[in-house]
Design a protein around this nucleic acid. Structure first.
Lengths: 154, 154
DNA sequence: CTTGAAAGCCCTGAGGT
DNA sequence: ACCTCAGGGCTTTCAAG
């Protein structure tokens, strides 16, 4: 379990993972040792899954983002598992969720431009077996892109 | 602009932001100085927007994730701007995209459980002015949750 | 744009309260 | 569970190729 101090550490690291143990300790009124041990524990027990950077996608040429709702034709277990394995191979799909509602899956897709998106849909996605309906929604602007966990829960 | 080496640095840091300058230098066959300067440049010029950690949401009690499609009643500029400002205030909304298609906005929402979700929809979201239709899709499982930028574009 | 070295700070672990 | 303290490694900077 995590206590209040652990949660504060997670919150600070979420905002800036480069913050030093020393800085975090100062912010919490502790010394570096307990902070260091808590961080190691959070890593070991999987609360912290990864240290990463957020990259400006447009600066590296990925101008187009879309959400793609997909429903399958056949819902037998083996078909579902195959689809979920295939999706892992598609680099353009950065997120994929199995959802309840009118569609089966929601995909978040990142590509350089509309041509590449069309190529993705018609050449890569449509090439998978068992694809029923596909419906695309293009992102016009990103209103909010917060860090993972709402502060009220940390 | 970023060259091939910069892109490799971004890729490595995306996978593990704790990698030391020394390790990255070794991986690229360079010394620490040029790598350090390139990283500073990538930070300064905004390619790297943030250093962060990925937290296991379920381990901190956020068992429920949902996508929420929202359409507005009134589409005048001032109403749109108000909605976009209001959304920033809602902690449970971790992502919000202005999209083209049947709805106006797609929200990614994180809450502890169904009760909290209902409270969010009926007390917080519905309390905003100008909300037309709302349609929720619950995430049953996360098939893929990759780091931001597809490797083929780095 | 590269190298190599040097100073300083940080992480990290031992031992004590 | 926290603090003090010290060793070793890393970042960061600078002079020079």
């Amino acid at each position: 379990m995590v206590d209040k101090i652990d949660k504060q550490i997670l919150r600070l690291l979420q905002l800036d993972a480069k913050k030093t143990t020393k800085e975090i300790a100062a912010a919490l009124g502790l010394t570096t040792t307990p902070v260091h041990e808590r961080i190691k524990k959070l890593e070991r027990e999987g609360y912290i899954q990864q240290y990463s950077i957020r990259i400006d996608r447009k600066k590296v040429g990925l101008m187009m983002m879309a959400f793609c709702s997909v429903s399958l034709k056949n819902h037998e277990r083996s078909f579902i598992e195959k689809f979920e394995r295939d999706i892992q191979m598609l680099d353009e799909v950065i997120d994929c969720y199995h959802i309840g509602g009118m569609f089966d899956y929601l995909l978040k897709v990142l590509v350089p431009n509309m041509d590449e998106y069309q190529r993705f849909i018609s050449k890569k996605l449509a090439d998978l077996d068992n694809i029923g309906t596909v419906q695309s929604s293009f992102v016009m602007s990103e209103i909010k892109h917060s860090t993972q966990i709402p502060n009220q829960f940390l």
